[in-house]
């Protein structure tokens, strides 16, 4: 008889494990907390405002690329070319405005045009990707891989492989300025992420992105103009990458010929750690943002801890795996 009440009450109470799983978004928060504690133990400077602001500022460009990639992944597509856009867009815009003595293209257009030109370049690249993927029906993976190589090659061709040093102040401003005590780039990223989260959660077009990524045929049957939405998503992706290029140029004071090279791996790592599915239709921008923060904190802790150069990559990779496992344990959901 003693067994009966237990059996009767058990199903009435939902198990806490299941309830946590609903907050897939927050899966990385425990990992971030652990990293904050570890960082504070390694060096008290870690928790100082200056250091944390540095971490955020260093991650701004990456976070914009992750924002772009996350939306594109949710829509069920791929964009590898973002890492070349971040270099080409500012390089082309600057090439058109700076004198040829500073490795410009010789056109010397007014410097006020630099920022609009940079953003326009990003949008055009996104639109061209969309043309190849949506009209010609080519595989997004291969198209953007080809674009990655073409765009990097264009940058090296246009600049003659030179780093551009002579940057007008207007271009340096965004990556360099301070608004209300914080670097402007942090504000910009925060605002864009907030806008992205709200749009994907509440706007009709934002929900359509999820629907398309989940099942494109069903979405079309439901009356969503799928191609148009995906095209816009790709253009936004190019724009964000160009903006990230501006921020990076401002922060580093030059456009390196290799600006952004190899970054796409980190972008995917951050998005996937943050719970965005490579198959489309799943994941949140907040999760992706957490992924960026995790990577940034790990980098910072490794620098503060003075890990030897020979071991830093192995340890970096191992910590990423550990963060993934921690996220899996705390959210209790299978990752894909």
């Amino acid at each position: 008889m003693t067994g009966t009440p237990t059996v009767a009450t058990a199903p009435a109470k939902p198990r806490p494990r299941l309830r946590l799983a609903r907050f897939r978004d927050l899966a990385l928060v425990p990992a971030i907390v652990v990293l904050l504690v570890v960082g504070a133990i390694i060096d008290p400077v870690f928790l100082s405002k200056a250091n944390l602001v540095n971490v955020l500022q260093q991650q701004t460009e990456l976070s914009l690329l992750v924002l772009a990639e996350a939306i594109i992944l949710i829509a069920g597509k791929f964009d590898l070319s973002l890492e070349s856009t971040i270099g080409l867009a500012p390089a082309l815009a600057l090439g058109l405005v700076i004198p040829s003595a500073s490795h410009g293209l010789g056109t010397e257009w007014p410097t006020a045009l630099a920022i609009p030109l940079c953003l326009l370049t990003g949008a055009v690249i996104g639109a061209f990707n969309g043309l190849l993927i949506l009209r010609f029906r080519l595989s997004a993976f291969i198209v953007t891989l080809g674009m990655l190589i073409v765009l990097r090659g264009l940058q090296i061709g246009l600049t003659g492989g030179q780093n551009l040093f002579d940057i007008p102040p207007s271009v340096l401003y965004l990556g360099n300025a301070t608004w209300l005590g914080l670097p402007a780039s942090i504000w910009i990223c925060a605002i864009l992420f907030a806008a992205g989260i709200l749009a994907l959660s509440f706007l009709r077009a934002g929900r359509a992105v999820y629907a398309i990524g989940g099942n494109v045929d069903a979405a079309r049957a439901a009356g969503i103009r799928t191609d148009r939405v995906v095209w816009i998503v790709l253009i936004i992706g190019g724009l964000l990458a160009a903006l990230a290029g501006l921020l990076m140029t401002g922060r580093l004071g030059s456009v390196a010929a290799a600006q952004g090279q190899g970054m796409i791996f980190t972008v995917f790592a951050a998005a996937v750690i943050g719970g965005v599915s490579l198959d489309g239709g799943k994941g949140t921008l907040f999760g992706a943002l957490c992924g960026v923060l995790v990577l940034g904190l790990i980098n910072n802790i490794l620098t503060l801890g003075g890990v030897s150069a020979q071991w830093i990559q192995a340890i970096y990779g191992a910590i990423i795996l550990a963060a993934l496992i921690l996220a899996r344990l705390t959210s209790g959901k299978a990752q894909d």
């Binding site: 400077v45 100082s48 200056a50 250091n51 540095n54 500022q57 260093q58 980098n299 910072n300 620098t303 503060l304």
Partner: peptide
């Protein structure tokens, strides 16, 4: 990034 962190 390393320089910022170290200077802090």
């Amino acid at each position: 990034a390393a320089l910022q962190t170290r200077l802090a």
